[in-house]
Design a protein around this nucleic acid. Structure first.
Lengths: 207, 207
DNA sequence: AGAATTTTGTAGTGATCGGCAAAAAATTTT
DNA sequence: AAAATTTTTTGCCGATCACTACAAAATTCT
């Protein structure tokens, strides 16, 4: 069925290469020249495949989000809110810390554009982050109904707290914090997390 | 002594106007045209006064840092580590939350360039943030010597934890978190802060 | 083999980027 | 009043920005 000259590059490899550039230089800082050099193609090929710089960026975000979403799904499946919180923060620590070159440190959702000339970019990134926070919140609301969070706990605030820590840890990672340091911060942060009736409060806090 | 045509603009007013632009659009996103329009001057006046875009940015950062430093000095003077931590996080909440237009929400040190084409910019911003974290750390080391922090507490980790929270809160603020929400997060975060022998641990945690 | 189709490489588009030369304007000094 | 000094305005610089027209190359279909 497929006629015409075959494509010389793999789309997903191209997205991974572009991801690194956006991650390290930000949306605006990444020029088309940077991107085409990293992918190893000429600009018309880029535009034929992805439409525009923003189109490429959106495709990169989607690919990045797939991994993040898989991570979220795995931690949301934990049996209790406490375990979800623990897996979340330590997972973010592993994810954000410099792994030695495979991906840049930090989080693409933050690195690629907190502020930007085109305000659409920060907005779409913020929506991605808010999506994860909302998933945590819904998980914690379920926990409250099921009893592993006390009725006094606010699911919204707890989710916001974890999301805040995750963003902060990503910022720290981007400027060189080690995985060990991030895990220590995560552990400290978890001491604030309210205990349910299934675990003793003392254990949570002394740990 | 001063000869020549008088300057038509006030330097500090110009810096404040430029600060708003960098804060909202980032270092790269802020064009010279944006900056000169906001200040109300032509570009040669800008270059005569500040040398370059980076020169202007550095001057803006210095002005911004003065306020932050004054804030840090005030909270570092608190009698205990616990009080310093409390004043720090709630102060950041007030500072970062949208005040209704006077300054943009979030923190200039984060908004203006986490990642950037010119790597020098993220570096200089990171140094500013690290400076504040180091001040907290030194304060907490003193607290350990003076007894309002237990010897088991790590001043470095506590400082890193608070710095992480502050960065995370600034990110949340930039996408619309209210002061009330930020204060709730701050309060939750403070529950992790270790108590000294001057206050009862129970009080810190129940609060 | 030849027509049809798709991607490739070359070479550019106008717009905007940060920055600057030069003359006019506004002040102080002589 | 004229010289000296500083800033302002006008108009422009080469470089780079995101993006594209066009034709050669490489494949499949007839």
């Amino acid at each position: 069925m497929a006629a015409g000259r075959p494509r010389s590059f793999c789309t997903t490899k191209a997205l991974d290469a572009a991801m690194q550039v956006f991650w390290r230089k930000g949306y605006e800082g990444a020029s088309i020249t940077d991107l085409t050099k990293a992918i190893g193609i000429n600009s018309p090929s880029l535009y034929a495949a992805f439409g525009s710089k923003e189109g490429l960026f959106k495709a990169v975000l989607q690919r990045y989000d797939e991994r993040r979403q898989a991570f979220m799904d795995s931690i949301l499946a934990a049996p209790t809110a406490q375990e979800t919180a623990r897996l979340f923060l330590h997972g973010v620590a592993d994810f954000a810390a410099d792994t030695g070159g495979q991906t840049p440190p930090g989080c693409l959702f933050l690195q690629s554009g907190l502020a930007c000339c085109d305000e659409n970019i920060p907005d779409v990134l913020a929506r991605h982050r808010a999506e994860k926070e909302m998933a945590l919140r819904e998980r914690f609301e379920r926990s409250r109904r099921e009893g592993d969070l006390p009725p006094s706990a606010s699911a919204a605030t707890l989710a916001r707290y974890l999301s805040t820590m995750a963003n902060g840890m990503s910022v720290q990672a981007a400027v060189g914090a080690t995985a060990q340091e991030l895990h220590a911060i995560a552990e400290l942060a978890l001491a604030s997390f309210p205990a349910g009736d299934k675990t003793s409060p003392a254990k949570e806090l002394v740990d």
